[in-house]
Nucleic acid binder design. Structure first.
Lengths: 347, 347
DNA sequence: GTTAGCACTCCAATACGATGAGTGCTAACA
DNA sequence: TGTTAGCACTCATCGTATTGGAGTGCTAAC
């Protein structure tokens, strides 16, 4: 069977009204509220076809129809596109520029959650490809050293190092110099064995401790920081009864609170990366995260620097307002872009 | 009317079984499971008295009794004390020492939440009374400066400063020296105007920019950081139906997610600070937070350094296992103490 | 190909009675 | 005077019927 124009129109109408009301939509509703002048009986026949084709289904006989995942997918891919502009306009969301990246990210999730009424998440950017601006060692006391690193995008990381034996003040100054001359401008993943050997040779004049110290610091630099994830508006999901009973929704919220499976989501997103503006839509069973099989997830990837990326995601019921969500994401992305590019310029 | 021994015993029995079962407890239950050999009729009379005195109430006629807030209060103050030891023993919770305070705090909330099955929260310590270990200025580029501060307890804070005009490298070195000689060992709130004047006089040889810079940095130091609050296990609260329907529980979780009112809670705790081990119990309407009127909250105050305190809180239903919660808190507190004291020794 | 009509299904709401836990009260008892 | 047995009464809860209505599928006519 084929999906002709009339069927498409009907499918669209069904999905639209279902998005609005959240209740199974019947043939009479469609026959009344669409421009195609057809009786409910005809609609019924068409619906029967659509069901056979797998776009819609009935929760039970004598109920209206509900879109299947396949139906939503068709909607998102083919029907949704038109008239996004107007939605964008009314978004009065402004991300304020502040000096700590963390703050910006928190602002963003919060805005998205409150604007959409769904749950949202954002990851801090993956720093492995980020470049080191400088590193600064300071002695805390004779047995401890504080290493502060600044990366592009003004991301600051620090790490407290324990020394086996005291290191002189001058030595620290020298080390500072050494590290900065060798490592400045390199991305974290570019710092490799060879470099390390060179550095050690250069530092050979110093004692064994120093060589050890180099090891420790490099280790600290490369330390896989389990990427920070911020969430917001998770409790919004309680508003959608179709996500299950208390028990189930609880599980879902728990997963979000504990950030369970969100890294899988990120990985998947990174992999799927392409398509329109890098915005991905996962519907129901398409979700990479088990606990969100009844949700839809819309993700986008932002870029802080060349290759330094993070992921934004919005989690809601399958009948979420995809159009609004996508347009919200677009707005936010462009704002983030503006902020980061401006950062770049200033630098 | 007076609360004689028999009434006390009965009240205790009622509360104990209610904590267990969560269901209204009737006279027959009490008459069977207590050592006082009394018929249910007698118990009924006593219960009637207890109700009149406001310790218990009936959700409806022909239902068993439930403790009122006053009843819980009496229980917590007078009846709970005995046999806490055994509970402590079985807590195999170990807080691991890591170098970032943030990590420790996150561990702690998590442990508490998973051990108790309630929600838990912890605040980072108030830093105003904390002393400055050292401050380190580094030039990022000619228009930006990174100020890194380390406080007692190895808390690291940083702030990016924008300069109006470039500052020379040597000047930064001098400023570093200046700041450290003047401010080292002072608590953040001790850094005042007078000191500032002295510093400026000392720096008078430098240009106006430097004087401005001093202002900016001091400002940054004193900047009221809205204390970070970590929560965990908030979704546990969904397990307790008595906390209300979806709507209500949603509100509660929302408040926790947004950290709404938690600062009031902290303020109140700080104020009430004293009593046994600094552990406070707020039952139902006693709660300083409106959204938690149907919960009980148990709080404790930990100390990182002399005067540098933070608050831990556990939020659960009124029929929470107070004994377990208190003992859990005690265990955690002693562990935190050990960690912080050890820190102190090492230093 | 479209539509009107009708029988049929099934959820949701409502009402109803039975059940049982629990109370309060009274009268008898020690 | 305190305790207890007994009994009538209350009320939430649960299962069962009943009903109404929304919606479908099918058939026959247009």
């Amino acid at each position: 069977m084929e999906l002709d124009e009339r069927k498409t129109k009907i499918l669209n109408a069904i999905i639209q009204t279902y998005l609005d009301t959240g209740e199974p939509v019947g043939s009479r509703t469609i026959s009344k509220f669409t421009d195609l002048k057809l009786s409910s009986a005809t609609i019924r026949n068409e619906m029967s076809d659509l069901e056979e084709m797998g776009y819609i289904f009935q929760p039970h006989t004598s109920a209206g129809r509900i879109p299947t995942d396949k139906g939503y997918r068709f909607y998102v891919d083919n029907l949704m596109a038109a008239k996004t502009e107007e939605v964008v306009r009314e978004n009065e969301m402004m991300v304020q520029k502040v000096d700590k990246l963390e703050q910006i990210l928190k602002q963003v999730v919060r805005l998205l959650a409150s604007n959409t009424n769904y749950a949202s998440m954002i990851t801090a950017p993956q720093n492995r490809k980020n470049k080191l601006k400088f590193i600064q060692l300071s002695s805390v006391d004779e047995k401890q050293l504080l290493a502060v690193m600044m990366l592009e995008g003004n991301i600051v990381k620090h790490k407290l190092l324990n020394l086996d034996e005291p290191v002189e003040r001058e030595e620290i100054v020298k080390l500072n110099l050494l590290f900065n001359t060798y490592l400045q401008g390199l991305s974290l993943q570019e710092i490799n064995m060879e470099l390390l050997q060179n550095m050690k040779r250069q530092a050979a004049e110093h004692r064994q401790v120093v060589s050890d110290l180099i090891d420790t610091i490099v280790e600290a630099i490369q330390e896989e920081d389990d990427t920070e994830i911020y969430t917001s508006g998770t409790t919004n999901l309680l508003k959608y009864p179709e996500l299950g009973d208390r028990e189930q929704t609880g599980q879902l919220l728990y997963a979000l609170e504990e950030k369970q499976g969100l890294s899988e989501l990120i990985a998947k997103t990174a992999q799927d990366e392409e398509g329109k503006q890098g915005i991905q839509v996962y519907i129901g069973s398409e979700s990479p995260v088990q606990s969100m099989k009844d949700c839809s997830i819309v993700t986008a990837t932002y870029e802080l620097e060349e290759g330094v990326q993070g992921t934004i995601g919005i989690i809601g019921p399958k009948r979420m307002d995809y159009r609004k969500v996508v347009s919200n994401l677009e707005t936010v992305m462009s704002q983030l872009d503006a902020i980061f590019k401006k950062d770049k310029e200033e630098t």
